[in-house]
Amino acid sequence: MSKETFIKEIAPYAQKIQKEFNILPSVVIAKACLESGYGTSLLANQGKNIFGTKGDFKGESVIIQTIEYVNDVPVQVWNKFRKYPSWEESLRDLANLYVKGTSWNRSLYTSVIGEKDYKKALKAIIDAGYASDPKYTEKLVNLVYHIVKKGDSISALAKAYGSTQVQIQKWNDLVDFNLIKVNQRLRVK
């Protein structure tokens, strides 16, 4: 599955999440892309789990080897992960975690809800202890952008990422749609 295909498949669900839970779609999509390898990971394929959510979902789970970071050192471990019937359920479950928090801290992710700045939302997720990877925030921020390749156009990028040309122009302070350069980093979501 291509990156663009994966994003197109989950974008409508991420937009529903925004309407229902007030969570930025760019944050949810970036997390799904990073954690599932754009839907190609073993966990995404076997369990429709695109966020690496541990435990079980309605009694269903898969056991997969993964990497956890202990004192910034990667360690391979076997973990039990939730198995979902669809990617939409995986997205919805993540949104519920942000809204309801954890059993030990119901307000753990409250600063993610309603946040309009994706960098602040991502920082809130990291600050809450969501991931053990010390470069997690940096990896996510880089996924919210598109690196321009030869042949790219603003209209094609808008279509591919579910944005509009005007949004991409505004987010990137572009004077002219036709003045983009190869290797330029553009915010597209």
Rank of each mutant, 00 (worst) to 15 (best):
V188S: 10
N142A: 13
Q65C: 03
G52K: 05
I63G: 05
Q18H: 13
A14F: 01
C33R: 08
C33A: 11
T164A: 04
Y130M: 04
G47W: 00
Y38M: 10
K80F: 01
V182W: 05
Y145Q: 07
L122T: 14
K159P: 08
T102H: 09
F57S: 12
G37Q: 08
Q46G: 01
R185H: 03
K150M: 09
P85L: 01
S132W: 05
G47V: 02
R92I: 12
N71G: 08
V27A: 11
R106I: 15
D133W: 04
S61K: 13
A158W: 06
T137V: 13
I7M: 05
Y118M: 11
S111C: 01
Q65T: 10
L140G: 08
D152L: 08
D93P: 00
S36Q: 11
K31M: 12
A160Y: 13
N49W: 03
W171R: 07
Y145R: 08
Q15D: 14
L157T: 02
Q46E: 09
D127M: 12
A44D: 04
E115G: 03
T66Y: 00
D152Y: 06
K3W: 12
K80Q: 13
A128M: 12
Q169N: 02
E9S: 14
R106K: 15
G114N: 01
M1N: 14
D56N: 13
G47C: 02
L97N: 09
V112Y: 10
Q167W: 06
W171Q: 07
K120N: 13
K139I: 03
L186W: 00
G55E: 12
F177P: 07
S111M: 05
N96Y: 14
K58E: 12
V148M: 09
K149C: 11
R92V: 12
L94P: 00
I67G: 04
I126F: 14
L24K: 11
K189I: 14
K149T: 11
Q167H: 10
H146E: 02
G129K: 02
R82C: 03
S36A: 11
F177S: 10
K189L: 15
Q18V: 03
A44L: 06
G114C: 01
V99S: 09
V141L: 15
T53E: 15
I10T: 08
